[in-house]
Simulated scan of single mutants.
Amino acid sequence: MGQVRWADLEARGRAAGLDVVAATTAEPFDDARQILEERRAAGLNGSMQFTYRKPERSTQPERTLPGVRTLIAGATSYHRDLPPAPDGVGPLARVARYVWADDQDRLLAGLQAVCDALVEAGHRACVVSDQNHLVDRPVAERAGLGWFGKNANLLLPGRGSWYLLGTVLTDLELSEIDGVPEGRHVADGCGTCERCRPACPTGAIVAPGTVDARRCLSWSLQVTGSFPRDQRVALGDRLYGCDDCQEVCPPNRLERRRAAPGGSGVAVALGRPEKAWVPVLGVLAASDQELLDRHGRWYIPNRDPRYLRRNALVVLGNVGDGTDPVVRAALTRALSGSDALLRAHAVWSARRLGCDDLLVDLADDPDPEVQAELAAPVAPRGTA
């Protein structure tokens, strides 16, 4: 087998898309397993299965690559400045930064470049990122990339949390990599700061480093069934994801200043700025295939575009104009459609916008969820 030099692995990974690379050993993540099991027992994961489904697997690298000896953690930045000014007409919805451009492709390309170098040297290796197979954040924390912030994100010293994470697993012993830096633990950098906790629109950060997925808007936008009624006003104009707890984080604000003209940082190319905003009425009018073509890279429950429309109807109730004929027409279509889930959310949106006159024909709707929405109190827009 050929010699493996850390400098070569790092260079190949960075050239292909990684911003930071570090290595660590592959022992089981027993602490992470205990945390996952405790939070699952407390119901904090809600319906989220990601790494919660089988903690005994996601915390044991050996289950993914038998004989694994080393984990190489990679991180790719998706830092960007504030969203560009909306460019469009009609109600618009916000989209979280990590899907403004195809940064996941850069991360995977960088990880694969490291993996390929290891395979070329005669070792077994594989790539895992954003999957149920392995807990990427504990891997990165053990490798010394950063510390866990009070918002549960991994914070890289001097860089913040605008990073996608992934791992290369290999059977190569860590000690056999020439020049690999000695792993180090990154001390907590949050101190007494708790800005992220009150910034969460729904109070989902229930304790430092602990997020209740049932209250997290990012997760609620990705679950099946009805969008939680008590979170709809808090959703505001968000169609996909929520960046609020990261926006207020001081290291992230520092990174924004570093990446500004004259700063010492390097800003990530914005990609396609129009991805920061999505026309709400366009989502409601598009066909299933059009929605998948436009937003298929997002996590859409069961790959069913009805959930994008569900989310758009909630956003419409928060940002729409009930006197606008185009908005009223969109509500009328949803209220008369065959999908009871969408009819129910259109009821909430119509009532929120003061369009109760559109609901007359629903008095005898057979769906219990529609009837529940007709009976539930709704705060008109402008009052809550």
Rank of each mutant, 00 (worst) to 15 (best):
V20L: 13
W219G: 00
V326W: 04
A334Q: 15
A204I: 03
E373R: 01
A207Y: 01
L71W: 09
D103L: 00
L107C: 02
R40Y: 09
P198C: 08
H79E: 14
Y78Q: 09
P83I: 06
L92S: 14
E369Q: 14
A125W: 04
P250C: 10
Q371C: 01
I300A: 08
R33A: 11
L172D: 13
L36N: 01
L341S: 12
A125I: 05
D364M: 09
A101Y: 04
A259E: 12
V268C: 09
C126S: 12
A75E: 06
Q112H: 06
R229M: 00
A16E: 10
P83C: 04
V370F: 04
P157V: 09
V315D: 06
N132G: 05
T202F: 03
G2I: 12
R63M: 14
Q60H: 13
F227C: 05
L174C: 11
W162T: 02
A187G: 10
V360G: 13
E247A: 11
T51P: 00
I72L: 09
L362Y: 13
G354H: 08
R214S: 10
D243V: 02
R352H: 08
Y52Q: 11
L341D: 14
R310M: 02
V278W: 07
L239M: 14
A276I: 05
L291N: 07
K150A: 01
A152F: 02
P181A: 10
A346N: 07
R214T: 15
Q112T: 15
E369W: 09
T24N: 07
H79G: 06
V360N: 09
L107R: 04
L353K: 05
G320T: 12
A93L: 11
R343W: 03
E373L: 00
V223E: 15
G262Y: 10
E176W: 07
A85Q: 15
V347H: 03
